[in-house]
């Protein structure tokens, strides 16, 4: 079992300005995630799930405390270093897929590799492999507007996975999917987690999703309410 700490959150606090006052989205969060975990952040809207994912994804930084991802303190990273971290080590899957509308499925998936300056040959192989993983290789030339919700989310997974990141952050990935598609997507993620040993971190409040998790962290009002280990592969804080 691999116990390499890939994400460490120590006393993380996040406050946002709201009008003249402040809103505390995260309160003193202490969590560790090991490589290869399949974990979910669970809680109602406003519990701080997305904020936590954004900090781990270096899209945002904590107001207090330390968030260390891949050995790098998020607060200390410059814009360029954050971009580099995301580019090479972090994949994102969004609730509404956020596919680039003017690109084809192939180009959407290829995008991440373009940023890494891979050769055309390498890109083609990696993109087709990624599309194969998620079972939509035959849709490579379609535009996102022609895809169903399930297909769109598969493209988003392929785009996130094509660069084989160490961490994959998924913000409510099944929120816009029916039960059948949600199941298929989660099965795909689960198999990728096993195959590539990628750390998956979900935010969700979907009960159906939780049964796939090896670890469930319950958040409420910005604090960790409960950290449940379902499968022994995951470690607790």
């Amino acid at each position: 079992m691999n116990t390499e700490k890939i994400i460490t959150l120590e006393n993380v606090v996040k406050r946002f300005k709201v009008g003249d006052g402040e809103f505390t989205a995260l309160k003193d969060i202490n969590l560790n995630f090991d490589k290869g975990e399949f974990a979910g952040l669970v809680g109602p809207s406003g519990s701080g799930k997305t904020t936590l994912l954004n900090i781990i994804g270096s899209l945002d930084s904590p107001t207090e405390g330390t968030a260390t991802v891949m050995g790098k303190s998020i607060s200390e990273l410059s814009h360029k270093e954050s971009a580099l971290l995301r580019n090479h080590h972090i994949g994102f899957i969004f609730q509404v897929y956020n596919l680039l509308p003017v690109y084809t499925v192939y180009e959407n998936v290829e995008f991440a590799l373009l940023l890494q300056n891979h050769s055309a040959e390498e890109r083609k192989k990696a993109v087709m492999d990624a599309l194969d993983w998620v079972g939509i290789a035959d849709m490579a030339n379609k535009k996102p507007a022609k895809l169903s919700g399930g297909e769109g989310q598969r493209v988003a997974i392929a785009r996130a996975m094509v660069k084989k990141p160490q961490i994959l952050l998924a913000d409510e990935p099944t929120a816009n999917l029916d039960a059948e598609n949600a199941h298929a997507i989660l099965q795909t993620m689960k198999s990728l987690n096993k195959e590539l040993d990628t750390t998956f971190l979900f935010s969700t409040h979907d009960e159906k999703v939780m049964k796939y998790m090896d670890r469930i962290i319950h958040l409420r009002d910005g604090s960790v309410e409960k950290d449940e280990i379902i499968n022994s592969k995951s470690s607790s804080k």
């Binding site: 971009a83 580099l84 995301r86 580019n87 090479h88 969004f94 956020n98 509308p101 991440a112 940023l115």
Partner: peptide
Amino acid sequence: QKEIGTYIALGMTRGE
């Protein structure tokens, strides 16, 4: 905006 946010999330720098 979403597209720009996605670019940044995927690893583009602001300069890029």
